[in-house]
Nucleic acid binder design. Structure first.
Lengths: 189, 189
DNA sequence: GTCTATAAATTGATAGAC
DNA sequence: GTCTATCAATTTATAGAC
């Protein structure tokens, strides 16, 4: 151990405190003073580890948005089939389950998140709409697009529902894939 | 017309601008300067119509949270049955569909909303958890509670999905009730 | 690596003229 | 009803000592 109480611990403690506070109060409403206070250091020390509030948010979000975007982008130009749909739903669930602890921050402060990671917002919205359209199936009526939107919302319950720790990621995955498939089976056309 | 360009118009314009900006950026990130600018008046004039930022938020939210709480509270002490479930899901959908235009603000800034309406947060969370537990059905396993959470998320897609105006409230209601029922039919036990 | 001190900007809100 | 002017508080961020 080179760092008994060294910089790694402090940096990790800041990360943890920020995740807790962002999840509980939201990004905008949480000040760096508050984070520093919880860690037991001053604001200035916090700036030694993270050069800005946005960089702290970036460290928390990690690759969540990019992972999600990549999965949705796989629908572009892909012909719809039940098999392809199962594959994409499963991949989407993999991402959501993997990052589910940072989910509340992502959902609640999507604006701040997108500003922080400097994603192409227009492109992301377009990709999201295209994915929803694809998930509506071969007959993409308004009702079927609404069912697709409901399905995507249902998948995101992996982030919002607080589940006991003994319920594994695999069980969450299987339960929500099954539930979403049943929902989508109601598509008409 | 007693008020050609009178106070009613300005107050309504403030309401509209605030709803737009809160929905697009969130409550915390939107300043009163920004709202006043969009309306074409000064902050001071805004304060003539609304005595605080919280009161402006209250005017936008209206009875949404209270309506939702009342529906969820109906599950307390009610024995579960398919018929009762359909009734409560339908009532829940009525509320969500009715208030769907203010949905984004409600979801994104739930903390600010609760602070503004001074609801009993503890009680609301308890009611929400109890409703989810009830919706899990007679065999309330962890998996079934997750399915219930997914169902509730699916219902809220009435707020997030942007649908063409010719798609009626009744159609949204019917589509989501059907989809959610199919999802819940996957409950085990 | 952490501190004190402070800068620079923005915010919600108020006083008072017109 | 709307304005100008301003207040008090808070925020993100930086400078420089230790």
């Amino acid at each position: 151990m080179q760092h008994a109480t060294g910089s790694r611990d402090t940096k990790a403690a800041i990360h943890r405190a920020a995740l807790d506070l962002f999840s509980a109060q939201g990004y905008e409403k949480t000040s760096l003073r508050e984070i520093a206070e919880q860690v037991g250091i001053t604001k200035a020390s916090l700036y030694y580890h993270y050069s800005s509030k946005q960089e702290l948010l970036r460290a928390i979000i990690g690759t969540f948005v990019d992972d999600l975007r990549q999965v949705m982008a796989r629908a572009e130009g892909l012909e719809w089939s039940r098999e392809a749909e199962q594959e994409l739903l499963s991949a989407y669930l993999d991402v959501v389950v993997k990052h589910r602890r940072t989910g509340p921050t992502l959902i609640r402060d999507i604006g701040a998140v997108l500003a922080a990671i400097d994603e192409d917002l227009e492109g992301l919205i377009a990709t999201s709409r295209a994915f929803q359209h694809w998930l509506a199936g071969p007959d993409s009526t308004v009702a079927n697009r609404l069912r697709a939107a409901a399905a995507i919302e249902a998948l995101s319950s992996a982030m919002s529902a607080d589940l006991p720790p003994e319920f594994s990621d695999a069980e969450i995955h299987a339960t929500l894939l099954d539930a979403t498939t049943a929902l989508l089976a109601r598509r008409s056309g």
